[in-house]
């Protein structure tokens, strides 16, 4: 059966069948179901290769992910994939294992395979290489901040404000000496948090002690080792970690040294990972709108693919504080509203 016969059997126009394949979101669910049933019964599948030649589209997008084992990145990917599916697209997910060379290879492979657009998640690609890709005229969207290309279409989270809000909270609870466990992944977002940390200390007349800023790996192990170094350098009242994973490791190490959280020392994280509400004490953290980052990344990419977007667009999302138990906060005011 070809598309004309499908249309005839389903009692709709060829244009409607075409819309089911190309813009399924614009067809009423009942009609879409009816047409899909006819297509299924007839064993009809559109010839994507032919369609690619005819319409210059392959109905595919590429999603370049720093590391597939990081659940936060997967949550973002989930948002991208949902929007892509709604638009009738397939998503190629490329796991670059935090390696610049692999990232480059994947990007050129995606371009060679004629994807309609590419989303780069927390990319560290250098500016010169990105400029070269832009010459290919392929729609490109960044998820996360790119240090040297602030004007490119992107979805970002205001991590500086998120960190500042948390530091303000810790100061309000009564902590004056706050250690900072700085992961390096994603790099820009961690640096933004550090800026938020410094700004808030300054605003409250607290001198930032450089010994209390410890760089570490973004993992549970990184948190474990990092907090040991931090405790050797000084003895802060509270520990701020740039990710929940680092915070878990830090809590583990602090408990091993016989300290109680939050009675002896407070710990807060960043991300609102699913586990953060299950561990004891429940982790006070900053919620990142991960899925929404993916959803908006895909939305602005499809606006570019369809030609609707006339200029580069940046979507800035906000974080939200989740006050639980690990920060030593006794009242539940912030938790309720």
């Amino acid at each position: 059966m070809n598309i004309k016969q499908i249309a005839k059997t389903a009692g709709v126009s060829v244009a409607t069948v075409s819309r089911v394949m190309n813009h399924p979101e614009t067809v009423a669910p009942a009609t879409k179901e009816k047409i899909e049933k006819v297509m299924q019964e007839a064993g009809y599948t559109p010839n994507w290769f032919a369609q690619g030649l005819n319409f210059n589209t392959t109905k595919t997008i590429g999603l370049v992910i720093p590391h597939m084992l990081n659940p936060s990145y997967m949550e973002i990917a989930n948002g991208v994939e949902e929007v892509a599916r709604m638009r009738g697209y397939i998503t190629f997910m490329c796991n670059v294992q935090k390696d610049v060379q692999t990232e480059r290879e994947y990007i050129s492979q995606l371009i060679n395979r004629r994807v309609d657009g590419i989303i780069l998640m927390f990319s560290s690609m250098e500016r010169e290489y990105m400029k070269r890709i832009q010459k290919e005229k392929i729609p490109l969207v960044f998820i996360g901040e790119h240090k040297s290309m602030p004007k490119i279409s992107s979805v970002q989270v205001d991590c500086r404000a998120g960190a500042a809000e948390m530091i303000a909270h810790l100061i309000e609870v009564g902590h004056r000496s706050i250690g900072f466990l700085q992961g390096h992944d994603p790099e820009q977002e961690c640096l933004q948090q550090l800026t938020g940390y410094r700004n808030l200390l300054k605003a409250n007349g607290i001198r930032a002690d450089e010994q209390l800023i410890v760089k570490t790996e973004n993992s549970i192990e990184g948190g474990y080792i990092g907090v040991k170094r931090l405790m050797a350098a000084g003895r802060p009242d509270a520990v701020y970690a740039t990710s929940d994973e680092i915070a878990y490791g830090a809590m583990d190490a602090l408990k091993d040294s016989g300290l109680s959280i939050p009675q002896d020392i407070a710990v807060v994280g960043f991300g609102d990972d699913r586990m953060s509400n299950l561990i004891e004490p429940k982790l006070t953290t900053v919620e990142l709108p991960l899925r929404k980052m993916g959803i908006y990344g895909a939305r602005i990419l499809f606006d570019m693919i369809s030609g609707e977007a006339k200029e580069e667009r940046q979507i800035i999302l906000r974080t939200r504080m989740r006050i639980r138990k690990s920060c030593g906060h006794k009242e539940r005011i912030g938790e309720m509203f």
Partner: peptide, 28 residues
């Protein structure tokens, strides 16, 4: 994405439709 379809249905008999939106950031 689905509101393109719903708006069309809503406005198919004429009538004035105001879209209510809610989000946390200005750009959203």
């Amino acid at each position: 994405e689905g509101w393109e379809r719903e708006m069309k249905i809503a406005k198919s008999d004429g009538g004035i439709v105001i879209a209510s939106i809610s989000a946390h950031s200005p750009s959203e």
